[in-house]
Design a binder for these strands. Structure first.
Lengths: 340, 340
DNA sequence: CAAAAAGACCAAAGCGCTTTGGAAGACTCT
DNA sequence: AGAGTCTTCCAAAGCGCTTTGGTCTTTTTG
């Protein structure tokens, strides 16, 4: 059943039927009812390919997925996706993932824009002055950045969490508890979130005349194994930290294992605070010693970004508004006063 | 730059240019060279929307993503996606995720097929006699099932791992080591993979005249917390198992925690074997006691399924061939002879 | 009461590609 | 030399929708 048949059936022109269905004003209300009714009864669904060709709108949002033999997709992605999907579903939006060589995403961005394959895109895990952000900005496709990319001379729309504030608070708490040697096990420090976290921590320390020593900060991809290694390296130093802030729950698993291997205890010998993106399958309260966290649901962020993308597509949202969400500091058993 | 302009520029008809570009035989080789060359030089890219409308081909593969406030996307999904993306990238295939209400995916399947939104779909986490499989089978869109759906009177194409064989081998090893009371912490037993694993285990036990007691099998969603709870329930029984097979690494984290909480040790009091889908961020060899596993890379499966989908789209693959991959049994420190 | 405005509808021209059904010219065959 | 065959190319008809630029009534306005 296509438009031609439907309009023939109603003895109306395609124009009128199309307009009736798309809510244009220049059609009699009663006619509209007839049309809408008939369309529903016959299960008429406009062919999206045709509509696409005519309007350029696709009803899809895009994401360029970096891939490659040595490229691992972040497990956070799936939670983000849950949120995104949750919103997208209720608005009949689909998500198209365009796999790209991790080292050449530009080609793919250009392709999906030139081909009008999606109405909007989002960008995640941005770095300072991220080329992708600059690119989509000039390409002129609606977009939202999940996270921030500092260092541009233009503004752009983003949704981010207050990573700096979160780790500032975490460090402040630890310092208040008497800790003087803090360490940071961070994610990839080429990414903004990691930079912000480190900055927040340094700021809190500086406020008390303390610093984060060179040997007290690690930057690694966030796996259990790397958490373990980093923790061992930190704890086996001559002047080991008495408190660690850790950028992910998964790395914290490794930290806890290292602590145990070294015959130490949490929080007796070491206080630990980690960032929690809120996974359904791994909860900080279930660590053998309940883990204190800075908490922010990445899933909610996914839903919010879908919402903003939809708003931008329909023209409801404009401008370069950035939003920064506060992060909860949740104190559990893994922090205590400094030993000694 | 569109076809019209390009053909005008070459003083050829759109027909000829289109055919030259798409490799049809009825065009002079020299003309073809001229066309291909000009197309490249002017960066001509056929408009996919237009091509879609004309051919019905989209260059996209589809996945219906179950969503909902209480629906969590499996973290395995992201690894699968890595593999899929890896292959798809090299073949200019995109993946479209269509979020659907978890309780009504049928509508979405019908929509994407009726609208010709994708050239093929894949289905994951199938259950016996899965309605989605029956549906796409009748809808006539090319598809591959990741996993198996038993109980149909028709054949269909799938790629699965030998879950039954894997857990059969695991159980056999444990029994050989003298264990008599085995337990299984399984995933959702409405899904085929879980059923097959349980079956494999029972078969191995039956071969030695043993059984898997009612109270020795748990079926839960695969989170750390559920692994913990299940393990406690098992181990606090009057006749606790001396060995556990566990369907996921994440649940195993919980099992290990439970064992520790109860003051028991692995493998002294309990042998543990888990299934490992091969995550980059959590490795069985890094468990405090290295974990024995049945191992199969879900990422490879993703790549394989993308490959098969592409083959089906281009007509290279036909029929209802199912393939079952063997699973490695990797023995590490977490298994030992039965205590006592 | 004529002129202007508003309301309701339509025919046809795109959107940019693929594909059908020739046609013109060169070549082969009897 | 005339009939058949290739080879190479083209004009035009879709694909199914949106949108432009009307027309024909009916209502409002000065």
């Amino acid at each position: 059943m296509n438009l031609k048949q439907l309009s023939h059936m109603l003895a109306l022109s395609q124009t009128t039927v199309s307009r009736a269905l798309n809510g244009y004003p220049e059609v009699n209300e009663e006619t509209r009812r007839r049309v809408v009714d008939a369309a529903k009864r016959h299960g008429y669904r406009p062919n999206p390919s045709a509509r696409r060709l005519a309007t350029g709108k696709t009803g899809m949002i895009g994401y360029v997925l970096p891939t490659g033999a040595s490229v691992d997709i972040d497990p956070h992605f799936v939670e983000f996706l849950s949120g995104l999907g949750d919103y997208a579903r209720s608005h009949e939006l689909d998500l198209v993932l365009s796999p790209a060589d991790a080292d050449d995403q530009e080609t793919t961005y250009r392709r999906i824009v030139a081909n009008r394959q999606v109405d909007a895109v989002y960008i995640s895990s941005p770095r300072p002055a991220d080329r992708r952000v600059a690119l989509v900005n000039t390409l002129g496709i609606p977009f939202i950045v999940h996270g921030r990319s500092d260092g541009f001379d233009f503004d752009y729309p983003f949704t981010d969490i207050d990573n700096e504030g979160a780790f500032h608070e975490a460090a402040r708490l630890l310092v208040q508890l008497g800790h003087r040697r803090l360490a940071l096990i961070n994610g990839d420090d080429r990414e903004t979130f990691a930079i912000h976290r480190e900055r927040g921590m340094r700021r809190a320390l500086a406020a008390r005349g303390l610093t984060l020593g060179e040997r007290h900060v690690c930057s690694v991809t966030m796996t259990e194994e790397n958490g373990y290694r980093a923790a061992r390296r930190l704890l086996e130093q001559s002047e080991p930290p008495t408190a660690i802030a850790c950028s992910s729950l998964i790395m914290s698993l490794g930290v806890v294992r290292a602590v145990r291997d070294l015959g130490l205890t949490i929080p007796g010998d070491l206080s630990l605070i980690a960032h929690d993106d809120v996974f359904p399958w791994l909860k900080p309260e279930n660590f053998s010693v309940p883990l204190s966290t800075t908490r922010s649901s990445i899933r909610l962020a996914g839903a919010r970004i879908a919402e903003r993308l939809a708003a931008r597509i329909s023209g409801l949202e404009e401008g370069a508004r950035g939003e920064v969400w506060p992060v909860d500091l949740v104190v559990r058993g893994s922090v205590a006063g400094a030993p000694g």
